[in-house]
């Protein structure tokens, strides 16, 4: 999962301090692995250097964590591009896809389109495997089947997520 893009996406709803960003991240995405302050600090420095965020204000007496960050136009474009680009189909994608879906809902983008695009990318890979299977020996077929079952499991999760988008949108924007 891209922490930089996730923090950028969280900034789309308005400027925040580093501490607020960490709290929002942990609340929405960091159930098992909350962010360290150091990660937030280093990520924001990189985003600042790349012109994707800007410092919106500094509170008196504050260290680096007291800076308030705002997303730039380039930052918004970067988030949009990340959300619209499907992930390479591979096992254990769920945390990245979940993050993308939640961010799309939080920023008013179409989560359904994001899921359609990802499904299409998965299917593209499944077609390649299916074709290989048609011309392969039994060993090839079994190897392809293993990959196909994993991709299919991802897709079932995608369908389930798509069917629950309305409920999820209510929960994440509450």
């Amino acid at each position: 999962m891209s922490i930089g893009h996730t923090l950028l996406g969280l900034l789309e709803s308005g400027p925040r301090h580093g501490y607020d960003l960490k709290r929002a991240f942990d609340e929405k995405f960091g159930h098992d692995r909350p962010l360290h302050y150091g990660q937030v600090y280093s990520t924001m420095s990189r985003l600042l250097k790349n012109g994707l965020v800007e410092v919106d204000g500094i509170e008196a007496g504050g260290g680096p964590e007291r800076k308030r960050y705002a997303i730039t136009e380039a930052g918004v474009t970067d988030v949009a591009r990340w959300l619209a680009t499907p992930e390479k189909p591979e096992p254990y994608l769920q945390s990245t896809l979940f993050t993308k879906v939640v961010l799309a809902l939080l920023t008013g983008r179409s989560a359904a389109e994001l899921l359609d695009t990802q499904r299409s990318e998965h299917l593209r890979m499944m077609r390649v495997l299916t074709e290989r299977k048609r011309h392969g020996d039994l060993a090839d077929q079994l190897i392809c089947d293993h990959a196909l079952f994993h991709l299919e499991a991802d897709l079932r999760w995608l369908e389930l997520a798509a069917a629950r988008l309305d409920t999820l949108a209510r929960e994440v924007t509450a």
Partner: peptide, 22 residues
């Protein structure tokens, strides 16, 4: 079923009576 759709050349998605040509 995705495994069945994998035999196609391309897919369209129907949602709320509208089609999306992927």
């Amino acid at each position: 079923e995705a495994r069945v759709a994998a035999y196609s050349d391309r897919e369209i998605v129907v949602r709320d009576g509208r089609c999306r040509d992927m």
